[in-house]
């Protein structure tokens, strides 16, 4: 069935995100979310952001989550990235329940297995581009020279070889986001989460960043989960999930765009 947006079927507001793409049938589940609920207290009332969301993320896939502002897609990404915890339900990474991990283990999980790119670049103002990219590697325990070497290689890869010693206030929006991408990739994560990565950029820079994402995940064979409301961007993904009011409402498989 088509919902008019070129997107696939929905079933009582909850999609079976496990059995959607024929290509995914052969892939291993890297991460899954089961019955995720998230409720925020707002004054005297409550805001039910996620209403029992299920999700499977497969090794090496590029998944896009779309939806209007306030639909709950960023909240879901935060929960998947262990930046926030669900009020109900659980997240499994390689069959390991994240709720069972201590704060220290969660930090190791985020550092080693995940990479994050946010709408705002969130670079540290006092650190130059190279140091910003080095940070996760230093947190992982890499020595200063090793971290520096890795960060330099990644910055070269994202086209910022000549801007390594520039501070965030000396870089353009597109450059800042490229530094943020390099930082997210420095520890060779298994999943790269990007929350509206082109949201603050003009169309030209947005296109550069999009291309960069796809180039990098091809080169590095990592799993990409992007949250966006840019439908044009979403069309480049093989699997797109639409969220509305805290639930999945549609899924689209762009088979022709398989990576």
């Amino acid at each position: 069935m088509n919902n008019g947006n070129g997107m696939g079927n929905m079933n009582n507001g909850n999609l079976n995100t496990n059995t959607t793409s024929s290509s995914n049938l052969h892939k291993k589940t890297l991460m899954s979310a089961q019955g995720i609920h998230k409720i925020y207290s707002q004054g005297s009332g409550q805001l039910h952001i996620l209403k029992g969301v299920d999700l499977h993320i497969y090794e090496g896939e590029a998944l896009c989550i779309v939806g209007a502002s306030g639909a709950g897609k960023s909240t879901l990404m935060h929960i998947l990235g262990a930046l926030d915890s669900p009020d109900q339900g659980k997240v499994l990474f390689k069959n390991k329940d994240l709720s069972q991990l201590s704060d220290e283990d969660l930090a190791i999980y985020r550092n080693s297995s995940l990479g994050f790119v946010f709408q705002a670049h969130h670079l540290l103002a006092e650190f130059n581009a190279l140091e910003n990219v080095m940070l996760p590697a230093r947190l992982k325990g890499l020595s200063l020279p090793d971290a520096e070497q890795k960060a330099e290689a990644l910055l070269s890869k994202v086209g910022l070889k000549g801007r390594m010693d520039h501070f965030p206030n000396q870089l353009s929006g597109g450059e800042l986001q490229r530094v943020a991408i390099a930082r997210a990739l420095v520890n060779d994560p298994e999943i790269l989460f990007a929350d509206e990565p082109t949201g603050n950029l003009d169309s030209q820079n947005g296109k550069i960043i999009q291309d960069l994402f796809f180039d990098l995940i091809k080169q590095m064979r990592l799993t990409l989960v992007v949250v966006t409301h840019d439908l044009k961007f979403s069309e480049r993904f093989p699997r797109v999930l639409r969220m509305q009011d805290g639930r999945w409402v549609a899924q689209q498989n762009n088979k022709q765009l398989q990576l």
Binding site: D103, E104, A107, R110, N111, S112, P136, L139, R183
Partner: peptide, 16 residues
């Protein structure tokens, strides 16, 4: 706040 948030997202532990 924002810096601490991103540091934690990058894997900084509470102890760190």
């Amino acid at each position: 706040y924002s810096d601490i948030g991103i540091l934690k997202a990058m894997g900084a532990s509470p102890r760190w």
